[in-house]
């Protein structure tokens, strides 16, 4: 866990607690016995598509009842408890907005629904935070996906919540918008807010958060410092399918290399198990050149995120 951030003056601090939380639909278990505590700072909720991230976020946001366990913000259950939205902001994955409202009207409506004493000032502050002041008077159905996303973040932040949940916030954003959103999340975390965002893209999580919760098949597969988890991922065995002008000769040469843990030879070519991705891909051209073998095909056969996550589960 990342060390708890000191409270910035004026910014609220809250903890989000999940205690033995499960959620199932009939016989399908979407989330399985997840326990975690999220404190101030940015946490990435990482996992492949369908892992249960959205289900988990919906339970955190009070939009789904846990089948078992408890989801609490500062000790209060989130399910059937509208009062928690004083502390919580949510930017969900569905990008639906009231297209007939301008961005400013949308954020101002949020401020008024929160009963803020100075809704206009809160609206200006939130729109300024996401740098949408210039476009605030345009109807939201004229916005790009990234602009809509930023206005939704402004609406979620207008009441200055201690906890901000974002479901796949970088989806559909161009690189500039992505950088801006990452910077914003960094700042919110540094202010002492509890920020949790979900993603299925490793690099996004790496750039934004030091702490990560990895969900695979509904279970909490790994939890803690991102660098440790990243190291596990980098040093896992990699599998490559290779076809060459002389598979047998190449197999013998590869077996002599330290970068290779095992080689299987069959009629379709070679299947090579390498200990480290970088070492092997650097060694292969040199070995092939030395042996006078032409490599016709090199396919990493287990590069899907699912395989990376599966490895994490067993690590």
């Amino acid at each position: 866990m990342e060390p708890r951030k000191p409270r910035t003056k004026g910014s609220p601090v809250s903890d989000l607690d999940l205690r033995g939380v499960s959620r199932w639909y009939g016989n399908v278990v979407a989330v399985n016995d997840v326990t975690m505590t999220l404190g101030p700072g940015v946490t990435g909720l990482l996992g492949p598509n369908g892992a249960g991230k959205t289900t988990l976020l919906h339970m955190m946001a009070g939009f789904l009842a846990p089948s078992r366990g408890q989801v609490l913000i500062d000790g209060d259950a989130t399910w059937r408890n509208p009062a928690i939205y004083r502390k919580l902001g949510l930017v969900n994955e569905r990008e639906a907005v009231y297209g007939f409202l301008s961005g400013q009207e949308f954020v101002r409506a949020s401020a008024k629904l929160h009963g803020l004493p100075d809704a206009d000032a809160a609206t200006r502050r939130a729109i300024d935070l996401v740098e949408m002041t210039d476009a605030q008077d345009r109807r939201m159905d004229t916005y790009s996906k990234g602009m809509r996303q930023r206005m939704r973040v402004a609406a979620a932040l207008v009441h200055d919540p201690a906890v901000l949940l974002l479901d796949e916030p970088f989806n559909g954003m161009d690189p500039r918008q992505r950088m801006h959103m990452m910077d914003l999340l960094h700042r919110l975390g540094a202010q002492g807010r509890t920020v949790l965002f979900s993603s299925h893209i490793l690099e996004e999580v790496e750039q934004v958060s030091g702490t990560v919760q990895v969900i695979v098949a509904g279970r909490l597969a790994a939890s803690g410092d991102f660098r440790t988890i990243r190291r596990l991922m980098t040093h896992r065995p990699h599998v490559f399918a290779i076809r060459s002008s002389d598979d047998r000769r190449l197999a013998v040469a590869l077996m002599a290399s330290d970068a290779v843990a095992g080689v299987t030879l069959d009629k379709d070519g070679l299947t090579v198990h390498a200990g480290d991705y970088g070492t092997f891909t650097r060694a292969l051209p040199r070995i092939a050149l030395d042996e006078g073998v032409r490599v016709r095909q090199l396919i990493p056969s287990d590069e899907s995120l699912e395989s990376v996550f599966s490895y994490l589960v067993s690590a």
């Binding site: 946001a61 509208p82 949510l90 409506a109 949020s110 629904l113």
Partner: peptide, 15 residues
Amino acid sequence: DDGTVVHILTKPIPR
């Protein structure tokens, strides 16, 4: 249907 109801429901307002 279109999911915009979430904007209203994420407010501390009695249903």
